[in-house]
Structures are given as C-alpha cells and as structure tokens.
Simulated scan of single mutants.
Amino acid sequence: MSHALRPTPSRRRFLAGGSVLAAGLALPALGAHAQSSRPVLKAGDQKGGLRALLEAAGALDGLGYDIQWSEFPAAAPLAEALNAGAVDSGPIGDAPLIFALAAGTRVKAIGANRSDAYGTAVLVRPDSPLRSAADLKGRSVATNRGSIGHFVTLKAITAAGLQPGDVNLRFLPPADAKLALTQGSVDAWATWEPYTAMAETAGHARVLVSGRGLLPGLSYLAATDAAIAAKRPVLQDFLQRVSRAQQWANRNVAGYSATLARIIGISPEAARLQFERRQQAWVPIDERVIADQQATADFYAKVGLIKAPLQVAGTFDRGFALAG
C-alpha cells in the first residue's frame, strides 16, 4: 500500500476552504499545556460522514483541540491515509477495515456504529433486465476493491449459489463507477450510502440486491496506533461528540437531512432517504460486534480477498466510552 497521498478534488476543497476548526475550552485531561499549544486531530472523513453530522448538530462547540479535516470519496483512500499517518482517525466500514488490517495498516477500531444495511447495495440501470443476484453470472460489476460494495457483491452472489469468478469485477472509485453504469460499460454498480440514495432519487439506478440480511451493518471510527498512544483524550472527546451528534440527528430528522444536503452537496430527497433508512446508532464494542466482525474476516479469507485468516479481537480498543 502506497504511502504517497494524492488529494482528491473534494479533499482539496476541504483543505483549501479552512480545514482547521478551533474553539472553546481545553480538555481537562490535557491540562494547561493545551491552552498554549493546542493539540491537532487530523480527522479523515468520507462523503456524507462525520463532519456534516458534527456541524449540523453544533457538536464542534467548545473544542479543546483543533481539527484538520481531510475528505475522501471512499474507504480505500482513507485507509491509505491512515496507513501513511496523514490522518489520525476516520470512519470506515467493516469490510474495508479488514482489508486495511490484512495489508498491515496499524489501526484499531475505537467506536462501532450499527445501521440497516439496505443502502449497501448492487445497483443496475432502471431498464436493466437483471432481476436477482443469480442474474449477475457473467456480468460486470463496478466497485472499489475491498470496499463494502465489494463485500455485498460477493455475499450476494455466493448466497445465490455463484462463485466469485462468475462475475467480472471492475475496480473503480464511486464517480467513475456511476459513470460506467449510466453509460452502459458495466452491468451493475455495488456501492453504499449516500451514493445509493443519490442514484435512486436521480432516476439513474434501482437496487438489484440490498445488503439487508447479508451484512451486519457495521462501521467504525478507526484510529492509528500512534494517535491512540499520543492523543487518547482527544480521540475520546471526539468519539463522544460524534455519538451525541448522532443522537441529536435521530431526533431531528427533517432539520438534519436539510443541513446534510446543503453541507455535502446532494439533493434533500437523497439526504433524507439515506438517513432515514440507515437508522444509525453508535453501540458499545461488545462480543456481538466482535463476532460479526470475525465472520466478515472469515468470509474474506474464504473467498481469497485476504491471504491469511485474521483474528479480529486484537484489532479493537475497547477503552473508549460512548456518550451517555
């Protein structure tokens, strides 16, 4: 995995548009030193992710540290940034986290989020003759390698009795994959929210197979080992702010959806659709979370996406508490 990081256009916009947020009170755990030299959290994000949530909820008030945001279009470049130490922390799905860990990225999951997996889906054009996962045999599917889109594709076709080699996977980032689908150069696109809702509400695609019943709906806030060692109080505060912001959003669906649409530049219809059906909640890292993550790792080993079995228990740091 390369350590060279090429910012995407969206990432450049975030960096050029004032990427450091600073306000308020110092964290008690950081002491007087923080008042003269504030810590900086290098926070990675994905489209529709944490920054929009925190800003909409007003959860960035009173920070005792600065946040330097970097946005990525998908988990793979975010994982690369974590591996390179370019970011300290970021949101990442269960499958891409396993892919990153198997590649040697030194990160741990410090918070777990569980949601309805419907929007992690294999999409086809509205006029496509394909009607089920079994119809994907011999067809081309665009997705990111190691992503939750890759994961849902493999889960869907194996549940239908097919083998991984029965489909032609084309590894493309979301924007290129969407274009390939709409132009007809691939038969399907496996993706996640908010891309699924964006494609549906624009009339560009329909869901062929959803992740509901196939995936555990887990994603994580991951942090590098180095950041956990050096910035643990900052990461703890950040996770609790994220957790509180999610609780606020769940109580204020209409307002949050409108703000989300404006912040990340998608239609209000797509913002509300993807938010309402995900039903996200930050949950403790318990034995069920670990068992679900282990099952995902075992599946990736079974289909050959990782070279050796991965025991996931050690890839969690369970010392971080959620907001009450």
Rank of each mutant, 00 (worst) to 15 (best):
D317E: 08
V107F: 09
G217T: 02
A134P: 06
A43V: 01
A81L: 01
I263C: 03
L214D: 10
D116C: 10
T315R: 12
Y220R: 00
A117D: 04
I266S: 12
L53S: 09
G265M: 11
Q293D: 08
S219I: 09
R12Y: 08
D187W: 02
F171T: 06
T296I: 13
G213H: 09
A281Q: 11
A321P: 04
G58N: 07
Y300H: 12
A56D: 11
I228T: 10
W248E: 06
V141F: 00
F238C: 09
V312E: 14
Q280M: 15
A156P: 03
T120I: 15
P216V: 03
S36H: 15
G211D: 05
F238M: 13
G184D: 14
E193F: 13
G62T: 05
A52K: 11
A86G: 02
E276R: 08
G48D: 05
G146A: 12
R232W: 13
P28Q: 10
A75S: 13
E276C: 08
N113V: 13
R145Y: 14
A103W: 00
E200F: 15
A321S: 14
F238P: 05
A271G: 07
A245S: 03
A22K: 11
S36C: 09
A227V: 11
T191Q: 07
Q68Y: 15
A43L: 12
W189K: 02
H33W: 14
D187N: 09
A56S: 15
K42H: 14
R241F: 04
S243T: 15
A175P: 00
F238S: 05
R278P: 02
F99L: 08
P164Y: 00
L97G: 06
